[in-house]
Design a protein around this nucleic acid. Sequence first.
DNA 1: GTATTATTCAAACGTTCGTTTGAACCCGGA
DNA 2: TCCGGGTTCAAACGAACGTTTGAATAATAC
Lengths: 225, 225
Amino acid sequence: MTLRAVKPIHETQTRILDAAEALFMQHGFEGTSMRSLTTRAGVNLAAVNYHFGSKDALIEAVLRRRLDPMNAARLAALDQAERAAGGNALAPETIIRAFISTSLSLVADARGGRNFIRLLGRSYTDPSRAIRALIGQLYAPVLERFKAAFARALPGVLHEDLVWRMHFMFGTLSYTLAATDTVQLIAGAKPEDRYDPALLEDRLTAFLAAGLLAPAARSSARKAA
Amino acid sequence: MTLRAVKPIHETQTRILDAAEALFMQHGFEGTSMRSLTTRAGVNLAAVNYHFGSKDALIEAVLRRRLDPMNAARLAALDQAERAAGGNALAPETIIRAFISTSLSLVADARGGRNFIRLLGRSYTDPSRAIRALIGQLYAPVLERFKAAFARALPGVLHEDLVWRMHFMFGTLSYTLAATDTVQLIAGAKPEDRYDPALLEDRLTAFLAAGLLAPAARSSARKAA
DNA sequence: GTATTATTCAAACGTTCGTTTGAACCCGGA
DNA sequence: TCCGGGTTCAAACGAACGTTTGAATAATAC
């Protein structure tokens, strides 16, 4: 009894979730068949429908398994930063790091985490309306909270501008997570830097903080180049 | 003979390409069947295989039809800006606008252009290796040219940093194109602003220029928050 | 007007898809 | 020992997939 593998509670579910995470990342949701999925997981073809109900429900389970704790960690990081600051306003960099650092730490996890992070980066723009709706629903409370924090930290930025810049920030992050190592559009980045989350976090934070703090765009009327 | 519809040169091909563009955007490549595609185009089921060879070849044709002229326009815009500047260095904002303006102008085209632009934004992170390879190949010469222009315009930015920041810039743009109106993660943007390319260009340029010009990230050793 | 090529058409090809079924199996509590 | 709920299994379900075929039709050349 002393030597024993980790508890096999719901071992089948876990094997399915792990295999799904890897295959969804590699071939997409539609591109992954139940047969290849269950074969990779080493379970029977009917196991997914038995344990999760359907393929769609499995997709949701894969996303929630990691996203729920991740967003909870983001909120906790923001809470802690605000407590540490007393009543003072937070530096924008601090808020940015609270948001991106939890997801970037998964980049270093060569096991399953990195698979998920790329999968997540792609889900934001998935063709399926149901998936986008799920993502939006899971993120809504977190983004509201961070929007309020940014608004306090950046009193000089108009609300309208802030909303757009948060969109841009979100886009930069999601694309970086999804594509940085799969499509090398701009040559020149050292490969060993790609999986260094601390380095990536520094680079992203510098870029995003500058963008968020930028002087407002020209109000309107622009014609000549 | 006086009244006559526009030349039906390859009318079937065009109908197929238009229908494919719309459906690929809405349901993705894999999510679009040949039957729904040909039905929408009003052509026979076998027409795609007759005119293009296969579904994969059609995907490539859809991407090339708009992407080739778009990248040519980008290069032309950059050429013109450099000629106008004589031998002087370009402002980063000018280079950014040369890159993003051609794609943003399609956002206003409610007919087909907007469909394509969203489709394109999603293709960068498509699960299919073949599609990503095609995108990379089509973009390679353009990105090399713009990288050189940015390097000249931003002499203070290390090459290593510049490469990453161009990645971030590309990500911001692609996400903005792909998702801004389909997933409204951060509430608060006026809907009527979403399709105003001039406004969007101003906002993006301000954000990206600031990010590109940001002071370098802390070199390394970072531990305490 | 006839010969030749290009295009369209309805129908079927074989394969793969997600899901369901009902029997077999495992295992702790009476 | 037998029972019963939870789980796994091989097999099959109907539907949808991308592609191919060969005849019918339209367009072009001579």
